[in-house]
């Protein structure tokens, strides 16, 4: 799977290559699980990874790759984690596409525009929480496994907001870097676009880079 990385000047080309390969595996697993949940073949289009300071996130949301997602009504499923690795992972969809995904997950008919696309029942919210829980656990859990670190999760949360009136919440502590991952999932019958954000503290990113270095030393001596 091709992968685009931007803004990771702090990494050497070998480190970048190792990180790309690692992300390919994590995303492949997450896409495979989404395919299972949606009961359809899912094509994972070119994901992008960007490492930058959290203070730049607001601007990045307005960049071209995210403009289609961050427009109007949005639903997000998030999972905070702590212990040896700290951060937050968040899955964001336009409400319409989130509703389609929930329908696929529950084996329901795909709703029509006139059926009240914006209406998320308690059951829909519960399903969206589980979809986020499973996908984000796969991505974050594979970080933890690679780094041989134990993380403890908070309960998953589902939130609705209208962009740009309300913006998604991310940790804003000093020193937070964001590992920003954008994915586009294409389903057979319809196209669902979503964004995955993984926010790691600087300490956690340092652990990740140190582990990549160890793997490279093992490989190349």
């Amino acid at each position: 799977m091709p992968m685009l990385l931007r803004g990771i000047e702090m990494l050497s080309s070998l480190q970048r290559d190792a990180l790309k390969e690692f992300m390919n595996v994590s995303f492949g697993q997450a896409a495979s699980l989404l395919s299972e949940m949606a009961g359809q073949k899912i094509k994972l289009t070119i994901p992008e990874i960007e490492l930058s300071h959290i203070s730049l996130l607001g601007k990045k949301i307005e960049d071209e790759p995210f403009a289609n997602i961050f427009k109007g009504h949005i639903v997000s499923s998030s999972l905070a984690f702590g212990n040896e690795l700290k951060g937050k992972a968040q899955l964001v969809f336009p409400v319409k596409e989130g509703k389609i995904l929930v329908s696929l997950f529950m084996g329901d008919e795909i709703p029509l525009e006139d059926d009240g696309f914006m209406d998320f029942s308690d059951t829909d919210i519960d399903a969206m929480k589980e979809i986020g829980n499973i996908m984000l656990n796969t991505i974050v859990g594979s970080f933890a496994n690679l780094l041989d670190k134990q993380i403890i999760y908070s309960l998953p949360e589902v939130e609705f907001f209208h962009y740009p009136d309300h913006q998604p919440k991310f940790p804003h502590e000093t020193g937070h870097y964001i590992l920003l991952i954008r994915t586009t999932f294409s389903l057979v019958k319809t196209k669902i676009e979503g964004v995955v954000f993984v926010v790691l503290t600087m300490d956690s990113i340092s652990i990740l880079i140190k582990k990549i270095d160890e793997m490279l030393v093992e490989l190349y001596g």
Partner: peptide, 8 residues
């Protein structure tokens, strides 16, 4: 569980 950690 959704938790795939080997520690878990």
């Amino acid at each position: 569980t959704a938790d795939i950690q080997k520690y878990t």
